Simulated assay, not measured.
Amino acid sequence: MTSLAAFVLASLVLVAVPGPNLIYIITCSVQYGRRAGIVSALGVETGTLLHVIAAVCGLATLVADHPLVFAFLRCAGAGYLACLGVRALLRHPPSAVGAAEAVGRAARRRLLRLYRDAVLVNLLNPKVVLFFLAFLPQFLPTGLSPGDARTRMLVLGAVFLTIGLVLDLCYALVGSALTSRLRGTLRRDRFLSCLTGGIYLGLAALVFV
């Protein structure tokens, strides 16, 4: 098996493992529909792109080598997930008036918020920083110059991002397919908000595990 084929296989396995990114995409799709799921997938992979750039530029190594910076990133990530959880718990199910508003300006604001949250959920995950720090270099040939190593890491990062985007879009479509079954009544919407909030709060606690 070639190095690239091994990298693709390993990437498929790693992206498919459930985590905050996957859960965020599916919950957005279930709560708000296909468009929200697609936007959240694009936000997550924007975060992945920034992680790749950070790894290539050596910023990931800087974070990993400074415990205080890593601890800050860890706390910030857990805090942001907790904020998402509380916001979901306090969210009011949409009324008929709210549904009409969502067609216009309110819907666009929500999509922008979902995109921003997806980027931050990915960026503030310290385990992703360590993942790129430990994962990408394993597939670099020995004896590369620093410039060639950075170029190779960018190529591998682009492959990983493409795989992640394809799988994330699949998760978004699967989540949106559940929308008609899980949404539609105030009681179901309220249950879904509570479930989503509980999941985010649980993920916030798992950051420290």
Rank of each mutant, 00 (worst) to 15 (best):
A78F: 09
G79L: 06
G79P: 11
L81C: 10
L84A: 09
G85C: 10
R87L: 09
L89W: 15
L90P: 00
L90N: 11
H92K: 15
P94W: 09
P94R: 14
S95F: 11
A96N: 07
V97I: 10
A102R: 15
V103P: 05
G104Y: 06
R105A: 11
A106E: 14
L111K: 07
L111C: 05
L112I: 13
L112K: 13
L114S: 10
Y115V: 01
R116S: 13
V119L: 12
V119F: 08
V121N: 09
N122V: 03
L123C: 12
L124G: 13
L124K: 10
K127F: 05
V129R: 01
V129W: 14
F131E: 03
F132T: 00
L133Y: 03
L133I: 02
L133G: 02
F135M: 01
L136A: 06
P137W: 08
Q138C: 03
F139L: 06
P141E: 07
T142A: 14
G143H: 10
G143Y: 09
G147N: 11
D148N: 11
R150T: 07
R150V: 04
R150K: 15
M153H: 02
L154S: 12
L154N: 05
V155H: 05
V155L: 15
V155Q: 12
A158F: 15
A158H: 11
F160C: 08
I163H: 03
G164D: 10
L165V: 09
L167D: 04
D168I: 00
C170T: 13
C170N: 04
Y171H: 01
A172Y: 02
G175Q: 06
G175W: 07
S176M: 04
S176A: 15
A177T: 06
A177I: 03
L178M: 13
S180C: 00
R181S: 06
R183T: 12
T185Y: 03
L186F: 07
R187W: 04
R188I: 01
R188E: 02
D189F: 00
F191E: 10
L192M: 12
S193L: 08
S193M: 07
T196G: 12
T196F: 13
G197N: 09
G197Y: 06
I199K: 03
Y200L: 09
Y200N: 11
G202N: 11
G202S: 15
